[in-house]
Design a protein around this nucleic acid. Structure first.
Length: 825
RNA sequence: GCGAGGGUGGCGGAACUGGUAGACGCGCCAGACUUAGGAUCUGGUGGGCAACCGUAGGGGUUCAACUCCCCUCCCUCGCACCA
């Protein structure tokens, strides 16, 4: 055994062994309980960063631990390889995206291997190869045939910098999620996936995701944004048109004092009166100029202008002025609303500004609202007043009754609205999966027949980054024949949003080699769903929602059997340096490769696991890394010192034990319990590591006092135990030390069990309080009762000084822990 | 504004169902071994001379509160004119 711990040497050795022997390859096995452990796969940007290291280390600890508990663990890794950076690199470095991506993958793969991550690399998936995306194209066509994929013109978010369309989810505060340039609105024809058809199920099933963090569920629910209400038709005075509005508060219809419509509302031109035409046009132009983005960001003051037109209330027959208002969104509901200033804060502000009427129609219990005195709208429930036939009704009941009336009289319909929109997946980009559709002048839009899939992305393209997608300029790609009439036709030249690839990669991992169908059905059924998914919080909405959606679609297409892909979700915190997220612009990046070079992968892993619990942000500390390394050095030294002396003792049955051996065993089994409890379902890896540090400290203390011959078997057991317990955290050094002690490999070892009998003490240290204040400690036989402990405590001089001469009113004993003596004055 | 999660030593963080607050690590102080040490080892380290005081602040429940209840303040994240 080497005297000094040399991480590079032993890490490379074991990594090579795991590689050669495919130690972590798994197969379906009905005799074993499966566990599918998955970390979000990376975009192959070229190098791994600390965020990756953290994400994948957390996953690796769980994978290695679970294997030791006898689970059949699927732990795969792959590459989310389509996407824009490859194209950008192609432009700036004059390389082909394919080469760039492949280089990056090779590089990052070796970096991941250098971390000692226990993946089954035989299942590696690269989303940019035809054998992967051909199935995605098949799914798309199947969705098209079921009406779940359709083509439509719509206002899209256009990023002028990336020259592409963005999904709503990809627009953050009016800016592109990737490059942060201002997003502009453009009309474009593109392909949509009908995620709204699954809105209700996606929402409802949130309640089954009990293993997800609350806040992620909330974000998802929020995003789906369900609201129940009704649509009501309001005839327009002097016109043969009706204004359709959506409301969730039908109970307040008698309180309408005006109506508001969006500046983009199609009826504006028709309904505006001659006198108001100029004012309305000026207003609409001004609002539109700001663009949707400005209206969304700047939550400015509510503004509007009268159209000159009145609507007729189907309830009271009264005339209601119609305004164009900046705060009404065309994209939601019907683009028109009824305004009830007394019971809606936005309407209230608008009414105050333009001196419009405020009519109270809901009275809260025990209060009387006075329109003139109101400072804000009352949006709660109560009793309906001034509401014709509904007066006196409870407002919650009133909602239903008004809807019933509206429906009965054909003046509207009951309606549920969602904020969720269909998913626009067309991208005017080259480096993505081609959308497998063909345009024929005689036969219209046709899917590419299955036997002609995949529609391969051509490699001979000229990427400039300007104007149309390179595919649109690729004559040979564009020209094709119609699958129906065999006449000449054009191919779709848009590619799919890359979120499409990441919406089913976890399913592909179950049978990466399947050739004639996307999955091996048996493997898919065996492994799915993912038991534990680990990744960054930044994917709380986009990726996770799409993945849930596509999984439900694949279920309905007959592939997957489960409805939800991810049983448990862990969102790990960021890696922070000097109080800020590591980033190029701040210059506070720590390169994992340097850390590994300097300290070794085990040290890097150990520090990351020790410095903070997984879900919290982690503050990087160079000094902390040194501390982690010091611990491993200490472990190495202790094993080095004893390796020779303990040879020949097996860790099994121990001979008649003396007091010293019992003490060592108590420590060993207590630590097994602590580490097991913390790793099992709490994922508190930081406290696992500190328990192991404590144990090592204690072993050093024992060493200091001297371990006699009779203590060696127990000491041997202790060393074996530290090593095996530490293995998921620092796999290389432990594997090495384990071999030095002559044990079989840890990759096929079982997680140790603790024996309660060894943890038991013969005596206990009891903390003694007098009136709740800590006054001393006594040692008593284990499991002593109240009286016994009290008597022993009373003998203690210090405690006596607090108790003597005062009546003892009560004794409270927490077994083997604490005694509280309650005394009078 | 709404929703979620937080506020504990100089720092990262422990304390799982109320029971010794500050485990473990970093830093710092002192000492040992040393030509030297940024190596290693040993001891100390919340504040206060003390009684005592201390888990953002203030109330409460309890024999006992970081932990439970009420109020207030602050921080982080997400959503935000969604009718």
């Amino acid at each position: 055994m080497e005297e000094k711990y040399n991480p590079e040497h032993i890490e490379l050795y074991w990594q090579d062994a795991w590689n050669r022997e495919k130690t972590f390859a798994v197969h379906e096995n009905d005799g074993l309980k499966k566990y599918y452990l998955l970390e979000m796969f990376p975009y192959p940007s070229g190098r791994i960063h600390m965020g990756h290291v953290r994400n994948y280390t957390i996953g690796d600890v769980m994978a290695r631990y679970l294997r030791m508990t006898g689970k059949n663990v699927l732990h795969p890794m792959g590459w989310d390889a389509f996407g824009m950076p490859a194209e950008n690199a192609a432009i700036s470095h004059k390389t082909h995206p394919k080469d760039w991506v492949e280089n990056n993958i090779a590089n990052m793969k070796s970096q991941l291997k250098r971390l000692g991550l226990s993946y089954d690399w035989d299942r590696e998936v690269n989303t940019s190869v035809p054998s992967y995306y051909r199935w995605e194209q098949k799914f798309f066509i199947e969705m098209f045939k079921k009406g779940l994929a359709y083509r439509a013109t719509s206002a899209v978010n256009w990023c002028p910098h990336c020259t592409t369309v963005l999904a709503n989810e990809q627009v953050i505060d009016g800016k592109c999620w990737r490059c942060s340039s201002d997003v502009v609105i453009q009309e474009k024809e593109q392909w949509f996936l009908k995620i709204t058809a699954y809105a209700e199920e996606l929402l409802k099933d949130c309640d089954t995701l009990t293993g997800w963090p609350e806040r992620v569920i909330t974000m998802q629910k929020n995003w789906i944004g369900k609201s129940e209400g009704c649509e009501i038709l309001f005839p327009l005075d002097g016109m043969d048109e009706q204004l359709r509005i959506f409301t969730t508060r039908p109970d307040t219809v008698y309180g309408i004092t005006f109506m508001s419509i969006a500046p983009e509302h199609p009826l504006i031109g028709k309904m505006v009166t001659a006198e108001q035409r100029d004012a309305v046009r000026a207003f609409v132009d001004r609002i539109k100029k700001g663009g949707t983005k400005n209206r969304e960001i700047e939550i400015g003051e509510k503004e509007g202008v009268f159209t000159g037109r009145y609507a007729i209330s189907p309830f009271t027959g009264g005339k209601i002025p119609v305004f164009v208002a900046n705060f009404v969104l065309m994209e939601y509901g019907t683009g028109a609303i009824m305004a009830v200033p007394a019971h809606d804060q936005r309407d209230f502000e608008f009414a105050k500004k333009y001196g419009l009427g405020i009519k109270v129609v809901i009275q809260p219990d025990g209060e009387s609202l006075d329109p003139a005195a109101m400072q804000q709208a009352y949006e709660g429930t109560g009793r309906m007043v001034n509401s014709g036939e509904f007066t006196g009704t409870d407002s919650e009941r009133g909602k239903k009754l008004v809807i019933e009336k509206v429906v009965r009289e054909h003046k509207g319909i009951s309606k549920i609205n969602y904020k969720l929109r269909d998913w626009g997946i067309s991208r005017q980009r080259y480096w993505g999966a081609p959308i497998p559709m063909v345009y024929c002048d005689t036969c219209g839009i046709q899917p590419v027949p299955e036997d002609r899939l995949p529609v391969e992305l051509p490699m001979d393209v000229n990427i400039t980054g300007e104007g149309e997608s390179p595919l649109a300029r690729h004559e040979k790609f564009v020209h094709t024949t119609c699958p129906v009439c065999h006449g000449s036709a054009r191919r779709e030249t848009d590619t799919m949003d890359t979120f499409m690839e990441s919406s089913w990669y976890f399913e592909k991992y179950t049978s990466p080699a399947a050739k004639d169908s996307p999955f091996d059905q048996r493997a898919l059924a065996y492994w799915m769903p993912v038991d534990q998914y680990i990744g960054g919080i930044e994917h709380a909405i986009l990726h996770l929602l799409y993945a849930r959606f596509i999984t439900k679609v694949l279920r309905d297409l007959g592939y997957v059997q489960c409805s939800e892909p991810f049983l448990n979700l862990l969102t790990q915190g960021m890696v922070i340096k000097d109080g800020a997220k590591m980033s190029k612009s701040l210059g506070n990046i720590v390169d994992p490769e340097n850390i590994i070079k300097q300290y070794g992968a085990d040290t890097a892993r150990l520090f990351i696991l020790f410095a903070a619990p997984p879900e919290k942000d982690l503050e990087w500390s160079d000094k902390g890394v040194e501390g982690a390394r010091r611990f491993l050095d200490r472990l190495w030294r202790l094993v080095y010192k004893y390796a020779g002396r303990v040879q020949g003792f097996s860790g099994g049955a121990l001979p008649n034990e003396d007091e010293a051996s019992l003490t060592i065993r108590r420590l060993t089994h207590k630590t097994i319990k602590r580490v097991t409890d913390d790793i099992k379902d709490r994922f508190h890896f930081n406290t696992c590591v500190s328990a192991l540090m404590e144990m090592l400290n204690s072993l050093y203390e024992m060493d200091e006092k001297g371990v006699g011959e009779t203590g060696l078997p127990a000491f041997r057991e202790a060393l074996d135990t530290v090593i095996i317990l530490l293995n998921p955290f620092a796999p290389h050094i432990t594997e090495q030390l384990n071999r030095e002690l002559g044990n079989p490999p840890l990759t096929s070892a079982a997680w140790p069990a603790y024996n309660q009998a060894f943890i038991r003490n013969t005596s206990a240290t009891i903390v003694v309080q007098v009136n709740g204040k800590l006054r001393g400690q006594v040692r008593v036989p284990e499991d002593s009762d109240e009286r016994t402990v009290f008597e022993i405590a009373s003998a203690d001089e210090k405690i006596q000084s607090y108790v003597s001469g005062r009546p003892v009113k009560r004794l409270i004993l927490v077994k083997n822990k604490l005694l509280n003596i309650v005394v009078g004055q």
